[in-house]
């Protein structure tokens, strides 16, 4: 009988088990709550480690190192920020180094699951929430869809980061959002549309997570199921621009002023 210790669970998480072993483990996971909890804890440990290391990217690289690579002995007057290369997804935008320390600290505390407005009771992760037909209103993911602007990286708790990619009105007049949730070992790409006050998941696809040091770029392919779903829903209309989206969000996803 196979013993599913931390080494094996870690190998599963890292994609290092054989297909046969992975299938066997998945069977056990389906029926063993303690094993699932252990796997979740391993994922959380990795997610926390990635975030801690990602925070180093916001610190400026020593001038001496940059000068060596430039082959230039001339010394610039100021410290060169080093956000362009390798910053984690949450820290994508290049910003002035003067603000970067505050930015890092600020972003790390954007944690919707511990929002001051009250604890969330669902107890499920955002990757779990998006796998349902309707996104539980009592989740960080629902709150992100309701309130976050497209392009803003949101810490969803449990080592997950979310981002709305774009918003649009579909051919039936519903508001929809394309989104991505970055988990510790996989990312979920989805399209959700708002029916009444609920967000219904219209399309869902998974990809392997990017290593923390890599950017998610605009040119990175979106899973074809997602682009197909967006194309079908949006018809010939355009996505909302920033101003329209801001207005719709502040109106609670209503077109009534």
């Amino acid at each position: 009988m196979q013993e599913w210790n931390d080494e094996k669970l870690g190998a599963y998480m890292d994609g290092e088990l054989s297909p046969g072993e992975a299938a066997e483990l998945e069977q056990h996971l389906a029926s063993d709550k303690a094993l699932r909890a252990r796997l979740d804890a391993l994922r959380a440990a990795d997610g926390a480690t990635r975030k801690l290391y990602a925070s180093l990217d916001a610190e400026p690289v020593p001038q001496a190192v940059l000068q060596m690579l430039q082959g230039d002995a001339a010394k610039p007057d100021n410290v060169v920020p080093f956000l362009k290369l390798g910053a984690g997804r949450v820290f994508r935008a290049p910003v002035a180094i003067a603000a970067s320390v505050a930015l890092v600290v600020g972003l790390l505390v954007i944690n919707l699951s511990r929002d001051a407005s009250g604890p969330l009771n669902s107890g499920i992760t955002s990757l779990e929430a998006v796998s349902a037909t309707t996104i539980d209103v009592d989740t960080a993911l629902h709150r992100m869809l309701e309130n976050a602007a497209s392009g803003d990286a949101i810490d969803l708790g449990s080592g997950e980061t979310g981002e709305a990619i774009l918003s649009f009105a579909d051919v039936a007049g519903r508001f929809c959002r394309q989104l991505v949730i970055s988990g510790t070992d996989r990312d979920a790409h989805a399209v959700a549309c708002r029916n009444g006050t609920a967000w219904h998941v219209e399309a869902l696809a998974y990809t392997a997570s990017l290593p923390e040091g890599q950017f998610r770029t605009a040119s990175e392919p979106t899973p074809v199921d997602i682009t197909t779903a967006v194309d079908a829903l949006i018809g010939t209309a355009d996505p909302l621009d920033r101003e329209q989206e801001t207005r719709v969000i502040s109106n609670g996803w209503s077109t009534d002023e």
Partner: peptide, 26 residues
Amino acid sequence: VIGEQVLQGEDQVIGEMTLAEVQGVL
């Protein structure tokens, strides 16, 4: 420790852990 220069708070939450806890364990 890793991150000390950047992460000044003791109670910043990453998932279920605080940064300070992760730092301390590493």
